[in-house]
Lab assay of single mutants.
Amino acid sequence: NQASVVANQLIPIQTALTLVMMRSEVVTPVGIPAEDIPRLVSMQVNRAVPLGTTLMPDMVKGYA
Rank of each mutant, 00 (worst) to 15 (best):
M21N: 08
P57R: 06
L40D: 01
M56Y: 08
P50D: 15
Y63D: 03
L17R: 00
T54I: 14
V30M: 11
V27S: 05
M21D: 04
A34K: 05
M21H: 09
K61E: 11
P33N: 11
V6D: 00
R47P: 02
V27G: 01
A3G: 14
D58P: 05
S4I: 02
E35F: 08
N8W: 04
A16V: 12
V30Y: 12
L51S: 15
I11G: 01
M22A: 00
M56L: 14
D36W: 08
I37L: 12
A64F: 06
N8A: 15
Q14F: 13
M56D: 03
V27N: 02
K61V: 14
L40C: 03
R39V: 08
P38K: 12
Q9F: 14
M43A: 07
R23D: 05
A16M: 12
I11E: 00
Q44S: 14
I32Y: 00
V49M: 03
S42K: 11
E35Y: 12
A48D: 15
I13Q: 13
D36C: 14
E25P: 00
A3D: 05
M56A: 06
L19S: 07
I11H: 00
V20Y: 15
D58L: 07
N46W: 08
K61N: 13
P57G: 07
L10S: 14
A64W: 05
A3Y: 11
I13G: 15
V60N: 02
M56I: 07
M22D: 03
Q14W: 15
T18Q: 10
G31Y: 03
V45D: 02
Q14I: 05
V41E: 06
M56G: 03
P33I: 09
N1Y: 15
L51R: 11
M59K: 03
V45G: 00
N46L: 14
G31P: 00
V60Y: 01
K61H: 14
M21C: 04
G52S: 05
M22K: 00
G62H: 11
A16P: 13
P38G: 12
T53D: 13
Y63I: 06
V27D: 02
V41L: 14
K61I: 15
R23G: 09
V5K: 01
T28V: 09
D58T: 09
Q9C: 10
L40S: 00
Y63M: 05
L55V: 12
Q2W: 13
Q14K: 14
V6E: 00
M43Q: 08
L51V: 10
L51T: 11
Q44H: 11
M56N: 05
M56C: 07
M56R: 07
V60R: 00
A64L: 13
S24V: 09
K61M: 12
Q2C: 09
